[in-house]
Write a protein that binds this DNA or RNA. Structure first.
Length: 823
RNA sequence: GCGAGAGUGGCGGAACUGGCAGACGCGCCAGACUUAGGAUCUGGUGGGCAACCAUGGGGGUUCAAGUCCCCCCUCUCGCACCA
């Protein structure tokens, strides 16, 4: 054993050893409890960043800890390797996306992740851009197509002009592209969708069955799903046989309707304006609104505008004629794209009515009975009794909702419905570097799925990357032109690729049997390993990846491939790594390079600091001097072990006879504390602090020469310390373990248990308060009764002096801790 | 606006069912060893001379409040014309 800790040599040695021994290779073993620990796999951008270091350090502690506790731990890693940056690099530098991506993967695996000493089973590595993986995307797509879950439709979609592709709703934030923050526009296109809405109710219900998920993620998912119940009501359009159907959550206000509003995209616009004098003005209005980009369109502060179509519709409840308007705030893709407007009880309608001089009628009266349409300053949205509502007058509006709904259903012009904010997932991408959608268009046979035997539809390599015009696939004649699998006639391939979120929606299943070639995964292997016991990743995927993965799991279940409803039992969302109060970014110049830290201090220090500086869920403020502290701590442990190296290997650890020895006691307390901190929501920061305390105490204990009879205690302490350290700083732990004379790697050693007998106390320090203020402390034997404790406290001279002989009003005793004398 | 989370020394953060606020680390101060120290070790370190005062602010409950209750302020994140 070297005198001084040298992380570079130690780390290299053990990384090679683990690789040579295949220490972390696992197979299904029914005799052992399994544990599946997973960190979100990275996009191979070329370099890992501190967020990755933190993410994988957390996962590695969990995995190594569970291993030491006797679990058969599946801990895999792979690459989310389809995506735009590869294609952009191709356009800019002329490197093929495949070359760029595979080189990045090699670099990140061999030069970065492997240098971190992570306990992955590298034999299970997957890369989504390889046909061995993406063929199963295509296979799943075909199964979903058969079941009607994958379908094509023409609709208005989000278009990012910078990425030149369509985006799903989840991928637009405040009107901006999630990836490049460009302003998103609208386009009417024919696109492939996954019917995630068919699973909306189940996705919502199962939110209640995920107690291991952070509440805020579940809240975000519930909000995103956005279930609302209401009623659809048909209004007859005057002068035509057609009807206009609206959706409302407030059927209790149906008698207050004074006009209607429809979306500019509504298919009935043309019918409504036909032959009217304002027809051209309405068409122009619709055109203008539809040209607006998503950010403008959904800006809440935007002025509400509208235009009368010239046509009236009839409210079926009271047979009143109300004008039909087109409103710029009405959304085509929510509800029916048409709404009834009740200015008295809806703030938006109120403002709209005031602006255009439309009538206002109160139909819910408040408790003070002072609502008056003529004097109202804003809509009244509270509770009250229904008025001016025909047969429903006097009904409390809450009950009225149901009564009106029922009435409308009976009369045949209304029905109760559920509406979701969630839209179907648009998965077509007009880009090259993704999974080709396995569909062929035949002039004769129409849309024909690629037969399963013809999978995979491979991405052609010989395409051009110009960054202009259509995507490379659409421009490639060789790819596009094909024959119909049905009739053999000329046909054209679908040239869109799948959203890369498809890839990450089931990769956790692929890890269970990554080489399986008969199906996406081996059902038996998945039955053994699934679910993921602990999933760890960033909060930014709260409603993207995490929702899609839940959806896919249910679809895969319904395809009969897997028995389970949910993929991830427990979810840990780690905080960001920040520096100088801001997220690390090139533009701010506050990026800390993991390679630099690892080269300078070693991976163990990098891991230790990223776990020590904050609890995992919170943001972590990077501090270069804090890293020095972690480094110093490892040096201190090294020096401690080295001090006894050579004369302790043959010493047996202390047994119960050592009870009462302060270091022995502290050692067992530390085992208890570290174990509890890991079990209790992964409080790694306090677990490490506890180890530091033990080291400090061991330094004190061994400052002078240690007598021979105390060596067993020292042995116990050093053994435990190294075992506890092993999941956090595995390389140095291996080296020290060997230094203590062990021949088997600590990666396979057992986690220590604390001995309850060893932490029993014989004396306690009693805090004595007078009127709630600490006035004295005294050491008393443990296990005193309340009465004995009280006497001991009152006998204390300091307390006697303060109470001045007066009898206390009251004495509170907290056994073994505290006495409060109230005078 | 709605929802969630947070506010504790110079800094990152501890404090489990209410029971010694500030564990542990950084930084800082002093000392030791040193030609030297940005290495290492030892000690000290919330404020105040003190009584005392201190967990965003103000009330309250309690023998006792960072922790429980009420009101308010600030910050972060998510959602936000969803009818």
């Amino acid at each position: 054993m070297e005198e001084r800790y040298n992380p570079q040599t130690v780390e290299e040695r053990w990384q090679q050893q683990w690789a040579a021994d295949k220490t972390f290779k696992v197979t299904e073993d029914p005799s052992k409890p399994k544990y599946y620990c997973l960190e979100m796999f990275p996009y191979p951008s070329g370099r890992i960043h501190m967020g990755h270091v933190r993410n994988y350090s957390i996962g590695d502690v969990v995995s190594r800890y569970k291993r030491m506790r006797g679990f058969n731990v599946l801990h895999p890693m792979g690459w989310d390797s389809f995506g735009l940056p590869a294609e952009n690099a191709a356009i800019k530098h002329g490197t093929h996306p495949s070359k760029w991506t595979l080189e990045n993967i090699d670099f990140m695996r061999d030069k970065q992740l492997k240098r971190m000493g992570l306990s992955y089973d590298w034999d299970r590595e997957v890369a989504t851009c390889l046909q061995e993986y993406y063929r199963w995307n295509q296979w799943l797509f075909l199964k979903m197509y058969e079941k009607g879950i994958a379908y094509k439709k023409r609709s208005y979609v989000n278009w990012c002009p910078s990425c030149s592709t369509v985006l799903a709703n989840e991928q637009v934030n405040e009107g901006l592209c999630w990836r490049c923050s460009s302003v998103v526009t609208h386009r009417e296109l024919e696109q492939w969708f996954f019917k995630i809405t068919a699973y909306a109710q189940e996705l919502l219900d199962h939110c209640d069955k995920l107690p291991g998920w952070p509440e805020r993620v579940l809240t975000m998912q519930r909000n995103w799903l956005g279930r609302s119940t209401g009623v659809e009501v048909d209004f007859a359009v005057e002068g035509s046989g057609e009807k206009l159907t609206i959706f409302t959550t407030r059927p209790d206000t149906l008698y207050g309707v004074t006009f209607m509003s429809i979306a500019p995209e509504h298919p009935m616009v043309e019918t409504l304006v036909k032959g009217k004098q304002q027809a051209d003005a309405v068409r122009a209005f619709c055109q203008r609104v539809m040209r607006e980009d998503k950010a403008e369109r959904t800006d809440e502060s935007r002025e509400k505008e509208g235009i009368f179509t010239g046509t009236f519709a009839v409210n079926p409840l009271n047979n009143e004629k109300v004008p039909v308007w087109v409103g710029n705030f009405v959304l085509m893709d929510y509800g029916t794209g048409a709404i009834m407007s009740v200015p008295s009880h809806d703030q938006r309608d109120f403002e709209f009515a005031k602006k255009y001089g439309l009538p206002i009628r109160v139909v819910i009266q408040n408790a003070d009975k002072d609502l008056d349409a003529a004097t109202m300053k804003q809509a009244y949205v509270g509770e009250g009794a229904m008025i001016s509502s025909g047969p429903f007058d006097g009904t409390p509006n809450a009950a009225g909702k149901d009564r009106v709904a029922e009435y409308a259903e009976q009369k045949g012009y209304g029905r109760r419905t559920v509406n979701w904010r969630l839209r179907d997932w648009g998965i077509s991408r007009q880009r090259y570097w993704g999974t080709p959608i396995p569909i062929i268009y035949c002039e004769q046979c129409g849309t024909v799925p690629v037969p399963e035997k013809d999978l995979p539809v491979r991405l052609p390599v010989d395409v051009e990357f110009t960054g202009k015009g259509l995507s490379p696939l659409a421009e490639s004649k060789a790819f596009r032109e094909t024959t119909c699998p049905n009739c053999g006639g000329p046909a054209r391939r679908e040239s869109d690729t799948m959203d890369t979120f498809v890839d990450s929606s089931w990769y956790f299943l692929r890890y269970c049997s990554p080489k399986f070639d008969k199906a996406p995964f081996d059902k038996k292997a998945a039955a053994y390993w699934m679910n993921v016991d602990q999933y760890i990743g960033g909060i930014e995927h709260a409603v993207l990846h995490l929702l899609y993965a839940r959806f896919f799991t249910k679809v895969i279940r319904d395809l009969g491939l897997f028995d389970g409803d949910e993929p991830f039992k427990n979810l840990l969302t780690q905080g960001m790594v920040i520096k100088d109060g801001a997220k690390m970014s090139k533009s701010k110049g506050n990026v800390v390079d993991p390679d630099f830290i690892i080269s300078k201090y070693g991976a163990d220090t990098a891991r230790l600091f990223s776990l020590f500086a904050a609890p995992p869920e919170r943001d972590l403020e990077w501090n270069d001097q804090g890293v020095d502290g972690a480094y110093r701590f490892l040096h201190r442990i090294w020096a401690l072990v080295h001090k006894f190296h050579g004369r302790i290997e043959s010493v047996k650890p202390a047994g119960r006879e050592a009870a009462g020895d302060p270091l022995f006691r502290k050692t067992h307390l530390t085992i208890k504390k570290v174990t509890e901190d890991i079990e209790r929501q992964f409080q790694f920061n306090t677990a490490i602090a506890a180890m530091m305390e033990l080291v400090n105490e061991a330094y004190e204990y061994t400052a002078k020469d240690v007598r021979v009879e105390k060596l067993p205690v020292v042995r116990t302490t050093l053994d435990a310390l190294v075992q506890l350290l092993a999941p956090f700083a595995p390389h140095i732990a291996e080296e020290l373990w060997a230094g203590l004379g062990y021949e088997q790697p600590i990666a396979n050693a057992a986690w220590p248990n604390h001995d309850p007998e060893a932490i029993v106390v014989t004396e306690v320090t009693l805090v004595v308060q007078v009127n709630g203020k600490v006035r004295s402390k005294l050491v008393v034997p443990a296990g005193l009764s309340d009465e004995e404790t009280k006497s001991a406290a009152l006998a204390d001279p300091k307390i006697q002096e303060l109470t001045a002989g007066k009898a206390p009003k009251k004495v509170i005793v907290v056994q073994g801790k505290l006495v409060n004398v109230v005078v």
